[in-house]
């Protein structure tokens, strides 16, 4: 790989970032580099802060959402608080969802919710981590509200015709958390063991919670 040449005399800190695996080649990738270098040179942002923010992103994961769901499955008082005021309920578990309303909805044997943001990519990162690329895709945004069962089938999620499907559209001011239905055969499992059954897609509603180990 090529090395950095210091053909400029300012002393800004851009040594925090190693070269990417592939060299940027597109104009918008150059734009990112240009804006970042300018913001650092003008001391509007520091390389340290950007690196810290990138680490903070990596720490966010659907495990937070899974813990919330497992608690709701185990503790009916918490479940009711979660359905009544999700922002306050998740704060009990140390998850702060600020400046947007969080609404939790419950999947059952008869009712299935899935979440989309048709207008952009609104998503509760504090609970689910970084959104998958498909969530932001034009195809998912377009089709989720018109043919949710066909979309679910593309994710391998087949629901009986008797199950009602509701699609929730997120906005910049309102995010949703799906509480998947608790799988059969999980009586007596610990909260941690239950949380391990709750994957990201089940919190969006494109999948179900996993069956416990050994079950079909």
């Amino acid at each position: 790989m090529s090395t950095h040449t210091h053909d400029h005399d300012h002393d800004h800190d851009h040594t925090t970032f190693q070269p990417d695996i592939k060299d940027p080649s597109q104009e918008w990738e150059f734009l990112e580099i240009a804006l970042r270098e300018l913001l650092i040179e003008k001391q509007i942002l520091s390389a340290r802060e950007i690196a810290d923010e990138m680490e903070a992103w990596e720490r966010k994961s659907p495990e937070a959402g899974a813990r919330v769901v497992a608690r709701a499955w185990c503790d009916d008082g918490f479940r009711q608080r979660l359905l009544a005021d999700a922002n306050s309920a998740v704060a009990e578990l140390g998850v702060e969802i600020e400046s947007v309303e969080l609404i939790a909805v419950e999947n059952t044997a008869d009712l299935h919710h899935m979440v989309v943001c048709t207008l952009c990519s609104c998503y509760p990162r504090g609970l689910l981590g970084v959104p998958p690329l498909w969530y932001k895709s034009f195809e998912y945004r377009s089709r989720a509200v018109r043919e949710p069962r066909a979309v679910l089938a593309e994710f391998g999620t087949e629901l009986a015709d008797s199950v009602e499907v509701r699609v929730l559209d997120s906005t910049a001011d309102c995010r949703h958390l799906v509480i998947p239905a608790r799988p059969a055969g999980t009586e007596g499992l610990s909260e941690d063991a239950l949380a391990a059954l709750v994957g990201r897609d089940s919190l969006i509603g494109t999948a179900l919670a996993r069956a416990p180990h050994g079950e079909a």
């Binding site: 695996i21 990138m54 989309v116 207008l119 498909w134 377009s142 509200v145 018109r146 994710f155």
Partner: peptide, 23 residues
């Protein structure tokens, strides 16, 4: 305003964000 428009199949593959995207 894409909701309800016709569109093709969803690419459900996972995507590892690049360094540029994360920055």
């Amino acid at each position: 305003d894409l909701g309800g428009l016709p569109a093709g199949p969803i690419d459900t593959h996972e995507h590892e964000a690049t360094l540029v995207e994360r920055r």
